[in-house]
């Protein structure tokens, strides 16, 4: 699913650089990336998504070279094939839950909201126990519920790659377990690949594989 070869990335100010010689993630695999703050975990996620571009090396997703794609092609690929979950949920407060879930469909003309899309959104909401809150606004939801909506937004397009940047970082232990259950189970059911950055070692243990980022950038892949 994902293959990274000889990756080199640095920010223009030169204060930070990231080098990864090799990393492979299989289709359907769930990966937790752990490591200290500022080590480049989020940067790696941005590189995988094509939000940032490496100066050297290759990133392949399903044999598609991310680096060689145009901005437009990357955006269209990202919106259709990659689901993203952020630590602070990043829901649009002026949209209700249903509209937030369907947001990716409103951001690119290649995606259209059909009747089936809405049915899928309602089905996912049911799975996430949010079916009775579809008309509510983010400010009317708890933090756990908001993160569930953010995850549903990442899953709505049927993406085969879900990138999550500390999805439980803002949640209490109860909601962390709940969100982790829902996310891991749904991803498993859909056969999607999940790459998650987390500081929560308990949460990380529930993944198929845990990558210590410090060791990864030093050449050792797995822990």
């Amino acid at each position: 699913m994902i293959r990274i070869d000889n990756l080199h990335f640095s920010y223009p100010d030169g204060n930070f650089h990231l080098d990864i010689s090799e990393l492979s993630i299989k289709q359907g695999e769930s990966i937790a990336i752990i490591g200290p703050s500022g080590s480049g975990k989020t940067t790696l996620l941005n590189l995988i998504c094509g939000i940032s571009r490496p100066q050297r090396g290759d990133i392949f997703i399903d044999d598609l070279s991310i680096n060689t794609q145009s901005e437009k092609a990357l955006r269209q690929y990202r919106i259709a094939h990659i689901g993203m979950v952020f630590q602070s949920f990043e829901l649009l407060e002026y949209l209700n839950v249903l509209d937030n879930i369907l947001l990716p469909y409103r951001l690119d003309k290649t995606l259209r909201i059909e009747k089936e899309t809405v049915i899928r959104a309602e089905d996912i909401a049911k799975t996430f126990s949010m079916e009775d809150k579809l008309q509510r606004y983010p400010s009317q939801l708890s933090q756990g519920e908001q993160q569930r909506v953010a995850i549903m937004r990442a899953l709505i397009t049927g993406a085969k790659l879900i990138i999550a940047d500390e999805p439980t970082g803002n949640l209490d232990p109860v909601n962390t377990n709940l969100v982790a259950d829902l996310l891991l189970n749904f991803v498993k059911k859909e056969g999607a690949t999940l790459v998650t950055v987390t500081h929560d070692h308990t949460f990380a243990k529930r993944f198929d594989r845990v990558i210590d980022f410090t060791q990864l950038i030093e050449g050792e892949k797995d822990v």
Binding site: C49, I51, K72, R75, Q76, R78, I79, A80, M84, F86, S88, E90, L92, E93, L103, P104, L107, D108, R153
Partner: peptide, 16 residues
């Protein structure tokens, strides 16, 4: 800003 960055990350074009 956060909202707009999120939209960009998800895949919206800067024009949008």
């Amino acid at each position: 800003r956060n909202e707009l960055q999120t939209i960009l990350k998800i895949g919206a074009s800067p024009f949008r």
